[in-house]
């Protein structure tokens, strides 16, 4: 039981990191970045490619992995999404084009990874972590502690950033009404760049932690994570940091219970079931309110 709670907490922390990036860009910029999962995988993949050629310390690998996802997301926004937003006046059309561009962009890292690994699992080593016994046969390893701590700390930090800092307030203003915010002197370009950089870095961090924790990822690992991200966002409502945390707890807990009770092959279906349930019962999300509504 204790062991399952630990496993669930680790899962939850990874989910939080992954989903925060997704929900932030959607909530603030109306960008649903369908390449988010692919870039999460790509961060671990880049680190893997580096380890094939160089022997670097883990910390440096993290910088490379997180940086890759962050910079790629930033470039995606600066080059592609921003272009679409500037060019297409009709909001619905611009949202649709952004969605499609995200799918196209996701194809690039996935194809690279498939070609390089021949569509097989890859890892970056660093699997030896000391474990501590918690009694009752339950154990917790250093990496598990690190993941849980990072999830909790970064989630709190992000929540404080959005609610307490000047930049965070500007972000909420943009989420509420981009044009007005711009008129009021908010530098929307810089703000969207920062947001996307953070969003991508969070995905990269999730990918790096995951590949170390699980030992390996596959080129297709990002896709089920998109499902999970969707379920968490829709549970917690778009753009809400604490909502995302609560959504992640619910999903991770449900999955942990299902894994312990069944063979675990259907675990990805839970996300979809959650999505369907929320849509049928409460399309505007279950917990809290998004960025814009709280201004």
């Amino acid at each position: 039981m204790t062991q399952q709670m630990i496993n669930g907490a680790v899962l939850c922390a990874v989910y939080v990191l992954f989903s925060l990036g997704l929900t932030l860009s959607w909530g603030a910029l109306d960008v649903l970045n369908l390449a988010h999962g692919a870039l999460m995988m790509f961060s671990a993949f880049t680190a893997y490619v580096v380890t094939q050629h160089l022997d670097l310390p883990l910390a440096l690998l993290f910088v490379i992995g997180v940086g890759t996802a962050g910079v790629c997301t930033l470039l995606l926004d600066v080059i592609v999404f921003r272009h679409i937003r500037a060019k297409v006046a009709d909001k619905r059309q611009s949202e649709l084009l952004t969605l499609i561009a995200g799918v196209g962009a996701a194809g690039i890292p996935v194809t690279l990874a498939v070609a390089y690994t021949h569509d097989s699992p890859f890892g970056i080593g660093h699997l030896d972590w000391s474990s501590y016994s918690l009694g009752g046969g339950a154990q917790i390893s250093t990496i598990q502690i690190v993941i849980i701590a990072l999830g909790a700390v970064l989630c709190t930090a992000l929540a404080l950033w959005v609610s307490r800092t000047r930049t965070g307030r500007a972000l909420r203003a943009v989420a509420f009404d981009g044009e007005t915010a711009e008129l009021m002197g908010v530098n929307t370009r810089a703000l969207s760049a920062v947001t996307m950089l953070i969003a991508g870095s969070l995905a990269g961090l999730a990918g790096m932690l995951l590949v170390i924790y699980l030992g390996a990822l596959t080129p297709g690992s990002g896709e089920p994570f998109m499902l999970k991200g969707f379920a968490i966002i829709i549970l917690g409502s778009v753009g809400s940091v604490w909502g995302t945390a609560i959504g992640a707890v619910v999903l991770a807990a449900t999955e942990t219970v299902v894994i312990s009770q069944t063979s675990g092959t259907w675990v990805d279906a839970i996300s979809f079931a959650i999505i369907l349930l929320v849509i049928l019962l409460r399309p505007q999300g279950v917990v809290g309110k998004g960025l814009a509504e709280r201004v």
């Binding site: 649903l32 649709l96 499902l227 996300s271 849509i279």
Partner: peptide, 28 residues
């Protein structure tokens, strides 16, 4: 019936999720 009530991005997300879940179903 429930889907068309959703705003653009939500519908895109849900139908995208629908495609992905079918892969899971087929695999399992």
């Amino acid at each position: 019936a429930p889907l068309i009530r959703l705003r653009g991005l939500y519908l895109g997300m849900v139908t995208f999720a629908f495609d992905l879940i079918l892969t899971v179903v087929a695999t399992n």
